[in-house]
Amino acid sequence: MKTIKSNKKTSLLRGLFFFFFSLFVSGVLFSCAQPEIALNTEVPPPQKIQNPKILLINSNAEVEKYSVVQEEFRKTVSCPVLEIDLGDKKENYDIIKLLSYNADLVYCIGGKAYSFAGKYFNEKDIVFSSIINWLRLPSLSQKVYGVSNELHARMPIFMFRSVFPDIKKIGMLYSQQYTSQWFEKSREQASELGIEIIGSAVSDKASVMPALRQLLSEADAIWLISDPLVISEKKYLFEILKKCDTNKTPVFSYHDAFAKSGAVLTVSVDTPTIGRQAANIVMGILAGEKIDEKVQFPAGSHIILNLKKVKAYGLKYNKNALGLINNIIK
């Protein structure tokens, strides 16, 4: 085994190295002792901004989910808004020009917009929406607010339990990359409601179906969430629905169209409401109001029950809970 030979220069180097090492250790202890305090200055108390200006960044206005939110936002706010569309290939935005617009607040629609804002406008107040699983964002600074794309996990679980009280184990496909935090939160909430969530992490397209087969052997139902790795293409969505259908395992999901394609129960978010909520947060910040809830859950939802599938699978369901359903497919 080789060992390091010592000489004067090596000793000096080691000395420098240990100096820096102790600096790091100090940094660790500091960070651990005061985790809530950032090293930059505390945010001053909010103040009303006179003649505020808003910069709105849309990840891609061709995506309907983004454009609907943008439209509702514009209808609700009453101050000047400079809009840019990161998805517009013809648009040749000039960063320097955007910076010199000197917006008081940046509203980001979608993950790319948030990433863009974080890169160039990290000193501004930022409000986000329409991002998959906001829990995976880097630790939100004091100046970041948002509207979650997903409902509070308790809400859909409550619906599942209310309509299907016999279902005790729900399987969930998720990915470390996009939705692991959401999975953990859901599992926690479900446990409080007496339901066990069994998760299976997928790392690539190839592992989705094997993971699903594994879940089907254990779970009473499958909860299909918005994860771009789990349903990376339409064909995987249909394969999952088909496999569950063959197995007569109900699928719970988050989008109306999935109910029409074979899912048993969907609890979806009302997209325009997200735009209005974001607008209210923005106007509140600009008015100097204190925003207690940094990230709000969507206020509107829509529930569809595919009763046709329920009967085809012979599932027991709670007829008294049908009053909670917005739309029933017969």
């Binding site: 771009p228 790795l229 109306d256």
Partner: peptide, 24 residues
Amino acid sequence: EIDKEFQWLKEEAEATFVITASRV
């Protein structure tokens, strides 16, 4: 509707601010 949903999923998948579970 499904096509539009996948358009959104694809757009979100391409956002690259967080990869690791450490939230860093």
